[in-house]
């Protein structure tokens, strides 16, 4: 394997946060004395990403996802540990490093608010020293794929959230970064916009072999885009692997649902698997993987059996379960 696109070893990051008690007395006391609390946003993180991978960072709020992403992009200084991105140490912010990465944040913007997006594109062309013909070619390509032809000449403040994010993506990709960090890129967007952005990012990754690191609250974003996921909780790595592997470790059972005229008694069903839901003509069971064929054939045999579905547990539930049991963290590691 070539040199990893991203290599992180023993990364840690702590912040100092000022604290203040409630009430007027505490406020007055704080006039002279300031109390500081240390927050460990990232405790101990090690992983490596190969060039061209699409990786999702998952974790609850405050897990350290965004902090990690910002350290990788060179915005924050790590408190300890080694970080290499595209062969550079990010926080030194070398010109060549900044030219080979991009970070897009769903709730921040680089576009100038009162000017059309195309003005910022033009600025980036010069700042990133992009060859004029390459710039033209890429811009035309992006504009066509995202349907920006008329949008990019309107002042940014008049654009909708989704249109603005499309323009942000273009501004971030004009210099063709080999590593793209995305922090909640689809925040607050409707489903069709999410799909468009997902497809665009995937095409960019496949055509240019760029590494993509994504955080998102929408599990669909992650499961549709990222073959590999890193699960972070409390500033430490809880899982590294494919979604299937995670699901099988945490929730080995398959979820089988079916509709039928009538079902056997609960006692008989308990022998097939765990009953999750039983209402009217609908039944949902969790079944051991090796018993799925047998159970399915029995379900098919029920009177007026239809809409039979076998799937793995949804990612949201898997993660909720993973975070709900902090003690056996190591068990989840492959």
């Amino acid at each position: 394997m070539a040199e990893p696109a991203v290599q992180v070893e023993g990364l840690g990051k702590r912040f100092e946060v000022a604290e203040r008690g409630a009430g007027l007395r505490a406020a007055l006391r704080a006039l002279v004395h300031r109390r500081v609390r240390v927050v460990e946003a990232v405790r101990e993180l090690s992983f490596a990403l190969a060039p061209g991978e699409r990786v999702g960072l998952l974790g609850p709020n405050g897990a350290g996802k965004t902090t990690t992403l910002k350290i990788l992009a060179g915005l924050l200084y790590p408190s300890r540990g080694q970080v290499r991105v595209a062969g550079f140490t990010p926080h030194l912010r070398k010109y060549e490093f900044l030219r080979s990465i991009s970070l897009v944040m769903g709730h921040k913007r680089q576009l100038s608010w009162d000017l059309p997006a195309v003005d910022t594109f033009e600025l980036n062309r010069v700042i990133y020293d992009i060859d004029a013909s390459a710039y033209r070619r890429r811009l035309d390509d992006f504009v066509e794929r995202l349907g920006l032809a008329s949008i990019m000449f309107k002042p940014v403040r008049q654009l909708s959230l989704g249109e603005r994010m499309k323009c942000e993506l273009v501004a971030a990709l004009l210099h063709e970064p080999s590593i793209l960090f995305l922090d909640e890129p689809t925040l607050g967007m409707d489903v069709s916009m999410q799909l468009a952005i997902r497809a665009f990012v995937r095409e960019y990754n496949e055509e240019r072999g760029a590494t993509i690191v994504l955080t998102s609250h929408y599990m669909q974003d992650v499961s549709a885009l990222c073959p590999r996921i890193l699960v972070i909780n409390d500033g430490a790595l809880r899982f590294d692997g494919t979604i299937e592997a995670l699901t099988r470790t945490i929730r080995p059972l398959r979820r089988v649902s079916v509709r039928a005229e009538s079902f056997p008694e609960d006692a008989a069903l308990a022998d097939w698997g765990r009953v999750i839901e039983r209402a009217g003509d609908r039944l949902v069971l969790d079944v051991e993987p090796e018993r799925v064929p047998e159970v399915v054939s029995r379900l098919v045999g029920l009177p007026d059996s239809r809409e039979l579905l076998v799937r793995e547990a949804p990612l949201e539930e898997v993660l909720r379960e993973l975070f709900a049991r902090p003690d056996d963290a190591d068990e989840a590691r492959p």
Partner: peptide, 13 residues
């Protein structure tokens, strides 16, 4: 305060 500075820090200038 708002973190807008990040966008400037990411540019190679």
């Amino acid at each position: 305060a708002t973190g807008e500075l990040s966008a400037l820090l990411l540019r190679p200038i």
